[in-house]
Computed example of a mutant assay.
Amino acid sequence: MSEVKIKTKADPSVKRKSAAREWFDSILFAVVAATLIRWLFMEAFTIPTPSMERSLMVGDFLFVSKFHYGTRTPKTPLQVPLTHQKIWGTDIPSYLDWIQLPQYRLPGFSSVKNGDVVVFNYPPEDQYPTDLKTNYIKRCMGIAGDVLEVRHRAVYVNGKAAEVPPFSQQTYYIYTKKTDLDDAFFRQYEIINDYRPETESVNWQPLQQLNDSTKTNELVGYQVRTTEDVVAQIRKYDWCREIVAADELPQATPSPYNQLYGSKQFNWTVDNFGPVTIPKEGATVQLDKKSIALYGPVIQKYEGNKNVVLTDSTVSVDGKAITSYTFKQDYYFMMGDNRHNSLDSRYWGFVPSDHIVGKAVFIWMSIDPNPANAANKIRWNRLFSVVK
Rank of each mutant, 00 (worst) to 15 (best):
T35D: 02
S94I: 04
Q265N: 10
N307W: 11
T83P: 11
R151D: 13
I37G: 07
A360W: 02
K178T: 12
R105M: 12
T90Q: 07
P74A: 08
Y302F: 15
P166E: 15
D97A: 07
G349D: 06
R382P: 01
K215G: 15
A161P: 04
T269R: 07
Y136M: 05
F24N: 09
G296W: 14
D182L: 04
D247I: 05
K86N: 15
W239L: 12
V220E: 04
Y189M: 09
Q103D: 05
Y295V: 06
P129Y: 01
P102D: 03
K264G: 14
L294M: 08
S18T: 15
A44Q: 13
D247W: 03
F185L: 01
F186P: 01
I47E: 03
N121F: 15
K289Y: 11
M42E: 11
L82D: 08
G349P: 06
F266V: 02
R21Y: 11
Y175F: 13
L106S: 11
V244P: 04
V64F: 02
D180Q: 14
E125I: 07
L78M: 06
K290Q: 14
P74M: 03
E218W: 00
K301A: 12
A374I: 00
Y222D: 00
L287S: 00
L210Y: 10
V64W: 01
N121P: 10
N217A: 14
Y295D: 02
K377M: 06
I378S: 09
D116R: 07
K15N: 08
Y237H: 15
K301L: 10
A283M: 12
T326F: 12
T76Y: 06
T35G: 02
D25S: 13
Y173M: 06
G358P: 01
S94Y: 12
L249A: 12
Q127M: 11
I87D: 03
A372Y: 01
Y122M: 04
M141F: 14
E228Q: 10
Q223E: 12
F41K: 10
L82V: 09
G115S: 05
P102L: 05
F384V: 01
T284R: 15
M141N: 12
T134H: 14
I47G: 07
A375Y: 03
T71L: 02
Y302R: 11
S291T: 13
N267C: 04
N267E: 07
G358A: 05
T323I: 11
A246I: 02
T314L: 12
Y95G: 05
F41Y: 13
M141K: 10
F29R: 11
G145P: 09
V31G: 11
V220N: 00
D91M: 06
R235A: 08
T226P: 09
F63V: 10
Q100V: 13
R38P: 00
G59K: 02
Y175C: 09
C240F: 05
L132I: 00
L62E: 02
F185D: 00
I363S: 11
V4R: 00
A162H: 09
I92K: 14
Y136G: 02
D11Q: 02
E303V: 06
W239G: 10
P48W: 07
G304L: 05
G274P: 04
A372M: 06
R187N: 03
Y195S: 03
N307D: 15
S291Q: 07
V357K: 08
R225W: 03
G59C: 07
Q265G: 08
G159A: 08
P250K: 04
D312I: 09
E281K: 15
N305R: 13
Q85W: 14
P206N: 08
D97Y: 07
T90L: 13
D91H: 15
T199I: 14
K264Q: 09
